[in-house]
């Protein structure tokens, strides 16, 4: 019983980590085909925004909201200055966002130094048999699920969602029907940035606060989005579920390093034998 609970916890924890790592990247890639190599830095911005405002005395949830807000503003400015000029140019977007990533991480190093004092992990932990579980990480599992539900309603059921899906499918026709495509892109980019910021805000209490902290999410983020395929909106959940279970399984029987190697191995196999990713698989099944 305890063992079963532990397995469910470990798997859900791994899946929610993959999901939260990838969600901002997936929204921006799925919507605008921008491969955002500065994704990790967006996460860093959210994390620092949270830590700095928390140190100023804000309660943690408020500080996290500030972290998200700062990242949205950061994303908005970047979109206005750079990103909007490279829509429809995926390769250029790689170079441009890589440049942004370098500038931002070095700026953090200059402004904040090699590390700042982090936050304590909120909530406590409880014991079950031989295992101890962090309550905060269990909360994160529920939060990641909640975010997915909210995003589903935003993109599938809201008026903005209709505009966004039309714009993804046929941007030129959408504009000829009166959709302000540019505005839809700006809003979506800010949503993607805000989600990345939220990831940083949510995980920073469990991490040390260094300028390169975003890098911890990059591998998970990119493997999830790559295996999700061309339509990350459809493929992300199954991709994260598969990769998370696989990684936890191997970690369980061997150890964490082997688990990570196994994860990357699985990704290579998926790319090799399922080149259109999980979304391709789902679309074919329909």
């Amino acid at each position: 019983m305890v063992l079963l609970f532990n397995i469910i916890f470990q798997v859900s924890d791994a899946i929610s980590f993959l999901l939260l790592s990838a969600i901002g990247l997936a929204v921006i890639f799925g919507m605008m085909r921008i491969i955002n190599l500065a994704h990790g830095e967006f996460i860093t911005v959210g994390a620092y925004g949270t830590v700095v405002t928390a140190k100023m005395g804000l309660p943690l949830p408020m500080a996290m909201a500030c972290g998200v807000l700062v990242t949205i503003i950061f994303g908005f400015i970047l979109e206005r200055l750079i990103i909007r000029y490279i829509y429809g140019r995926p390769l250029d977007s790689v170079v441009a966002t890589w440049g942004i990533s370098l500038i931002v991480s070095q700026s953090f190093l200059i402004i904040f130094g090699p590390s700042i004092e982090g936050l304590k992990s909120p909530l406590g932990s409880f014991q079950m048999g031989d295992y101890s579980f962090s309550e905060y990480r269990i909360l994160l599992i529920f939060i990641s699920f909640l975010i997915l539900v909210l995003l589903y309603f935003l993109f599938m059921k809201s008026r903005f969602g209709t505009l966004a899906r039309a714009t993804i499918e046929k941007p030129i026709t959408s504009s000829a029907l009166g959709v302000d495509v540019q505005k839809v892109y700006t809003i979506t980019f800010c949503i993607g940035a805000g989600l990345a910021g939220l990831t940083g805000a949510l995980y920073i209490p469990t991490m040390t606060c260094v300028p390169s902290l975003g890098q911890a999410f990059i591998v998970s983020a990119f493997v999830s989005v790559v295996t999700a395929g061309a339509s990350p909106f459809i493929g992300l959940v199954p991709a994260a579920a598969f990769l998370g279970s696989f990684q936890t399984g191997i970690t369980f029987f061997y150890h964490a390093t082997i688990g990570l190697i196994g994860l990357l191995f699985a990704v290579i196999m998926i790319i090799r034998f399922l080149p259109s990713g999980f979304s391709g698989l789902i679309k074919k099944g329909k």
């Binding site: 209709t162 505009l163 499918e169 026709t173 029907l177 009166g178 302000d180």
Partner: peptide, 30 residues
């Protein structure tokens, strides 16, 4: 378009992933 010019392209360019009602509503929503 907002000023009041409608356009039906050759080949129609229906949004495949939107429902019929969402297709019709799109210009109204925007």
């Amino acid at each position: 378009s907002i000023l009041g010019i409608g356009y039906v392209p050759q080949g129609r360019d229906i949004f495949n992933s939107l429902t019929v009602e969402e297709n019709i509503s799109l210009p109204a929503i925007s």
